[in-house]
Every structure is written in structure tokens, then in C-alpha cells.
Computed example of a mutant assay.
Amino acid sequence: MKLVILDRDGTINHESDEFVKTPDEWVPLPGALEAIARLNHAGWHVAVATNQSGLGRGLFDVASLNAIHAKMHKALAALGGRVDAVFYCPHGPDEGCQCRKPNPGLFEQIGERFGIDLRTVPVVGDTPRDLIAGAAVGCPPHLVLTGRAASLKGKPLPDGYPAHTRVHQDLGAFADWLIAKVPAPRPVS
């Protein structure tokens, strides 16, 4: 199975310092949904690993989070794309859980659910914590210069990123790179 793990806020959709709390506040980044659809069409499955501490802070509830993800799924379906599963951590940064990135708990759950060795699964995100969490279980790290990483365009990566982090302008550029690197299998005639 070909699987990619994506961060959500700042990678797929616009980031908000006030948290994305409603479907109306969830706005995809330009080209991000099309990139996911291209990955799907090339045979890739997509999982999302996202910190959602707004749940634990009482800023929104699970029904609102589900409505946000339903909007994402519907927008993807309109493009012929899909996210196979969304894994989220509801805990705040001071709760000491193992599922909040940069801890690897969400990635371990994804590996279990899909029954896959994560050392072949790229992780894509816009913050060091996204990539550190994935690298902790062996995922090759890929930074997109969107969301919180937009300020790094044209600059060398600062300390704090995993070794061998590959940098892409956005999710579309990552998808183009991955599809060119690992093309879809050709049908047998």
C-alpha cells in the first residue's frame, strides 16, 4: 500500500491563530485538494494526522470537528479525491499525552490501522512538530512552505527540523515530486 500522512492546518487548509472551529472557517489552501486528488489517482492513500487542542480547550466540539471534516471530504470528492482516515489529538500542549505532535502517538495509530511499516510513508507538514512526530517512527519528512512555514521561503531551514527534511513550495509541489518519483503501476494488458 502506498500511503502519505498529511498535517491538516497549514498544509491542506489555511491556518488560524484562533483555531479552525467551524466548517465556514475551514478554507482549503490553493491547489491542496487537487494535489490530494492527484495523489489518489496515482494510487496513493492519504491519512491526516492533526493536533486539535481546540477540542480540549472547549472552543469547539466533536460534532463541529466532524462537520469540518465532512466539508473537506465533500470538497475532495467533487475533485475525485479522498482522505482515507483522519486521526486527531484533542489534548492541549500541557496534558502530556503521547498522541499530540511532536509525540508519535497518532503515527503509531496510523501504522496499526493500515498495517504498514511507516519507514516508507512520507509525512508532510508545515511545522517542525509535524515532521518530528513522523520522523520518530521513521517517516521521511517533507516540509511545505505554506501555513506556519511560509516565512521560510527562500531561506535555509532553521535548527529543529529532522535530518533529511525535503522542502516543497506547497502540497501540489510535493504531490508532483512524489508522483514523478513513484509513478502509478501500469495496468497489465
Rank of each mutant, 00 (worst) to 15 (best):
I132M: 14
E25R: 06
H91E: 09
G134P: 11
I132E: 15
D24C: 04
L55I: 13
E15L: 13
F114R: 05
P128W: 09
E15D: 15
V121M: 10
S151C: 11
G138M: 11
A75N: 11
D24P: 04
A77M: 08
G58D: 14
H73S: 12
A75M: 14
L39Y: 02
N40T: 02
W26A: 02
P141L: 04
L55R: 02
A42I: 05
G81P: 01
E112D: 15
P128S: 12
A133I: 05
T120V: 14
T146F: 10
V48K: 00
G96C: 08
G96L: 11
P122E: 14
V124Y: 10
V48Q: 00
D126C: 07
T146S: 10
S151L: 12
D24T: 11
F87E: 09
A75T: 02
T127A: 15
G147Y: 03
L39S: 02
G147D: 09
C99S: 07
F60A: 06
L33F: 13
E18T: 13
C97I: 07
A67E: 12
T50V: 04
T146W: 06
Q109P: 07
D17A: 14
G56K: 04
A67V: 06
A150D: 14
A35E: 11
K74H: 15
R38M: 13
K71V: 01
K21D: 11
A42K: 00
T120M: 14
S64M: 13
R148V: 04
N51K: 03
L55D: 09
G105C: 04
P122H: 10
A37P: 04
V46L: 10
C99E: 08
C97Y: 05
A133P: 12
D61M: 11
G134M: 10
D84E: 14
E108I: 11
L65F: 13
V124K: 03
K21P: 01
A136P: 11
N51T: 06
N40H: 06
G125T: 01
G115H: 07
A42L: 05
R38L: 12
N51I: 05
